[in-house]
């Protein structure tokens, strides 16, 4: 049993740490997306209405209709639609120096992907700027296989 700590003003209290292990099954659509990242390829999916969703989903979010495994390779470059600058990254942030979180519409996609843009300075960030992926040295099949997006002309 956990230690209990008497306190003059608040009575007894004790720590209660609740830890619990989970597992996620990705299914065929996101499973293919993350496998593609491992191979340096970004794939979206075309809905029956013709829009290309990135990341792909098993359904059209507007209608609820299923998507039909109509995968489309997109990017790898894209356009920053909006962004937020992180001046003082915390330990759990993806980069250890200032960077932007951004919504990036990859070429050929109709939706924007949330990712990280590494420009070195806020002054180098702008809505509408062109970016390209900087791939991780050892891809494993997760979103961090794209280490960051960087300005297209420096890629």
């Amino acid at each position: 049993m956990a230690d209990t700590t008497p306190s003059d003003d608040e009575g007894l209290s004790a720590p209660h740490v609740l830890e619990y292990a989970y597992k996620r099954s990705l299914g065929p659509v996101l499973g293919r997306f993350f496998t593609g990242l491992r191979d340096g390829k970004i794939e979206g999916i075309r809905t029956r209405a013709g829009r290309v969703l990135v990341p792909p989903s098993e359904y059209d979010p507007e209608s609820g209709e299923s998507t039909d495994e109509d995968f489309v390779e997109v990017g790898p470059s894209g356009t920053v639609k909006t962004w937020a600058w992180v001046r003082e990254p915390r330990k759990t942030h993806p980069l250890d120096h200032p960077f932007a979180f951004a919504l990036i519409e990859l070429d050929g996609a109709d939706t924007a992907l949330m990712h990280v843009v590494d420009t070195g300075s806020e002054a180098a960030m702008s809505t509408g700027m062109r970016v390209s992926p900087r791939w991780a040295a050892e891809p494993v099949g997760c979103i961090q296989d794209i280490a960051a997006f960087i300005p297209e002309d420096s890629a």
Binding site: S25, L26, G27, P28, V29, L30, S57, E58, Y59
Partner: peptide, 12 residues
Amino acid sequence: KRLDVSQVGLIR
């Protein structure tokens, strides 16, 4: 274990 589907895929 329906490891072949995501939570969304299962429900759909």
